[in-house]
């Protein structure tokens, strides 16, 4: 599933609820270099819509994939600039 891209960093926000998954994703992306991919692992079901919305309206990031895996929601975000 993640074979199309290499994961550079994984951010574990399991247990955290709104707004932390988005806020911490943003901070983690800031630490990456262009082209690198962040995996965000969350249990907040709202993170599916929130991270999609955030990636959509934020410049310099691209949402590669979102996967629901049992109780866990995984998000893959590439830094594009």
């Amino acid at each position: 599933m993640s074979s199309q891209f290499d994961i550079t960093e994984t951010l574990d926000v399991k247990g955290a609820s709104c707004p932390m998954p988005v806020v911490k994703t943003k901070s983690a992306i800031d630490e990456l270099a262009e082209g690198e991919v962040l995996e965000v692992v969350a249990t907040d079901s709202g993170s599916m819509s929130d991270i999609e919305g955030w990636a959509d309206s934020t410049g310099g990031v691209e949402l590669l994939d979102q996967v629901e895996d049992g109780d866990v929601f995984k998000h893959y975000v590439r830094k594009t600039e």
């Binding site: 709104c18 707004p19 988005v22 806020v23 994703t25 955030w54 934020t58 410049g59």
Partner: peptide, 11 residues
């Protein structure tokens, strides 16, 4: 606080 921190994440 939730809106402020989220908006900051949006740039």
């Amino acid at each position: 606080l939730i809106l402020a921190s989220t908006a900051a994440a949006f740039g």
